[in-house]
């Protein structure tokens, strides 16, 4: 549903913007990467002070990093006995981007303002090799049981942005250098630095109702704190997610 919405959103913008670009004759195709993942984009020159960036970025398939010694209780209900298990953390953005590049002067310095629209998820944590008790015992959150499957439990850190379900709309503000579309060059590049507003970050995991219905449920803060001390203080500052990206553009016409 989310994927269809994102694609629909992209198609809607492109069908509106592309005819204008074709009329003016300034459009570039860009490929790039950064802390928001790998992505592709089209850039449209609106006038000498403004360019429109429409793109898609995803962290899909990119490796994360693994903490090898995360301590968890051997039996979920007893704190005394502990077992060390690995925790793999991956960035997990998957979103469309609509940004306006504003050039205050004739230089390549620009301000960026716009939105990232896509999944609320931006971090995925996977605990593996959990003791067998975790396959049967879990947390009941609003009637949904969150537990491990074959020793593996996934949790997500979500940023709702403006909380427009089912697609998270996250405002983006940044600065950068480079013009995606230049009249005098076929190939250009741009480096951008900014931040996404994620809203209040929340941890979610897949829960299963007693009837077998599944749903991503929000893990209450006090529950998280009982597992990982002070985790809220770490996640709270992630409301503003810094991004750094680099794009290479090829002018199509």
């Amino acid at each position: 549903m989310k994927r269809i919405s994102i694609l629909f959103c992209l198609a809607f913008v492109l069908t509106t913007a592309l005819p204008a670009a074709a009329q003016k004759g300034h459009l570039s195709l860009g490929l790039g990467g950064g802390t928001g993942g790998l992505g592709a984009a089209v850039a449209i020159k609106l006038d000498s002070h403004a360019q429109l960036y429409l793109g898609y970025g995803s962290m899909f398939g990119l490796p994360g990093f693994t903490l090898t010694q995360v301590s968890v209780p051997t039996h979920p209900g007893i704190p005394a006995e502990k077992t060390a298990v690995p925790l793999n953390i991956q960035l997990a953005m998957n979103e469309a981007r609509a940004l306006l590049y504003f050039y205050p002067s004739s230089s390549s310095f620009h301000f960026i303002l716009g939105f990232h629209m896509g999944t609320a998820r931006y971090l995925r944590g996977t605990l593996s090799s959990l003791p067998s008790d975790y396959n049967t015992v879990g947390l009941d959150i609003d009637g949904y049981l969150v537990k491990a499957h074959e020793g593996v439990m996934e949790v997500e850190l979500n940023g709702p942005g403006f909380a427009l379900s089912p697609v998270a709309v996250k405002p983006y503000l940044g600065i950068g250098f480079g013009r995606p579309v230049r009249d005098d060059r076929r190939v250009t590049c741009s480096i951008d630095l900014g931040f996404q507003y994620q809203g209040k970050p929340e941890w979610r995991a897949l829960g299963e109702s007693i009837t077998g219905r599944t749903k991503m449920v929000q893990i209450p803060e006090e529950t998280l704190e009982s597992i990982f001390e002070d985790i809220s203080s770490y996640t709270d500052w992630m409301a503003f997610w810094p991004t750094l990206s680099f794009h290479l553009y090829f002018k199509l016409f």
Binding site: H75, P76, G77, I78, D133, T136, G138, L145, I210, S226
Partner: peptide
């Protein structure tokens, strides 16, 4: 669902008392 050091839950096929008792004891 039992409340304790941490509130935990488990699902059981049918309702077997011994199985449930074992779950309670295994979790303190």
């Amino acid at each position: 669902t039992v409340k304790g050091w941490r509130t935990i839950s488990a699902d059981f096929i049918g309702c077997d008392f011994k199985e449930i008792a074992d779950f309670l004891r295994a979790n303190g």
